[in-house]
């Protein structure tokens, strides 16, 4: 990851940390740089996916239907930063809780970043990833995705309450043939989005 990537991530990390429209704090800034460097060292990023021409049955409902409208296929995907990140966050809470909180937020942003980078290789006509739990979609659909991909080999698991482990993991779908920049204007969630209500966004933009 280069420094412009880090600049790209920084607003997102601040967002996760609950900073609202405030200029940077030098101490937190320094922590972010250290935490991202730590992540580059300890994260074991894994990405699994399968491409379907026809969406699997569990996607034949809202909000997936709206998301997939006009697409010519769907990618089912799962990704994780691995268990070492959880372990380090856990340990840091005993040693330096502020750092633990910053590492946690950095890890969330870093996972998104690595996933976005990976997806650039999968095609140029992909919509932004959509994960069960967003937009009122049921969390239990994660079971369908786990059934399709069996991501256990990458160290991911799903517990009885539909929590993914390691905690820095995502699983979702990507509409193919529907290229779109992440933007609020085109987002079908715009009416109900909590981020937007607070004047924030769920994504980072270069230069902002």
């Amino acid at each position: 990851m280069n420094s412009s990537d880090l600049e790209f991530l920084r607003p997102q990390i601040y967002n996760y940390l609950g900073f609202r429209g405030v200029s940077a704090d030098p101490k937190t800034d320094a922590l972010i740089v250290e935490c991202v460097a730590e992540l580059e060292k300890i994260a074991q990023f894994r990405y699994l996916y399968r491409l379907f021409d026809e969406p699997p049955k569990f996607l034949a409902k809202e909000p997936y239907k709206a998301y997939l409208e006009g697409s010519r296929g769907v990618i089912i995907c799962a990704m994780t930063l691995g268990i070492s990140v959880d372990r380090e966050i856990n340990r840091l809470f005993r040693v330096d809780a502020a750092r633990a909180v910053v590492l946690d937020s950095c890890a969330s942003a870093y996972l998104e970043f690595r996933a976005d980078e990976y997806e650039k290789k999968l095609g140029s006509d992909l919509a932004p990833r959509f994960c069960p739990g967003y937009g009122g979609s049921p969390l239990c659909d994660l079971r369908e995705i786990f059934g399709i991909l069996s991501p256990e080999k990458t160290g991911m698991s799903l517990n009885e309450s539909d929590f993914m482990l390691p905690s820095k993991s995502m699983a979702g779908i990507i509409a193919v043939g529907k290229a779109a920049e992440k933007s609020c204007a085109g987002c079908f969630m715009a009416k109900t989005c909590n981020y937007l209500k607070e004047g924030r966004r769920c994504y980072s933009q270069k230069g902002k």
Binding site: L17, G18, F19, R20, V22, D25, K27, T28, L31, D96, A97, A98, V101, V102
Partner: peptide, 14 residues
């Protein structure tokens, strides 16, 4: 009042 944020709150608490 939104002038301090979570990492700073925690540092102070520690």
């Amino acid at each position: 009042s939104g002038k301090l944020f979570l990492p700073q709150l925690i540092s102070s608490a520690e």
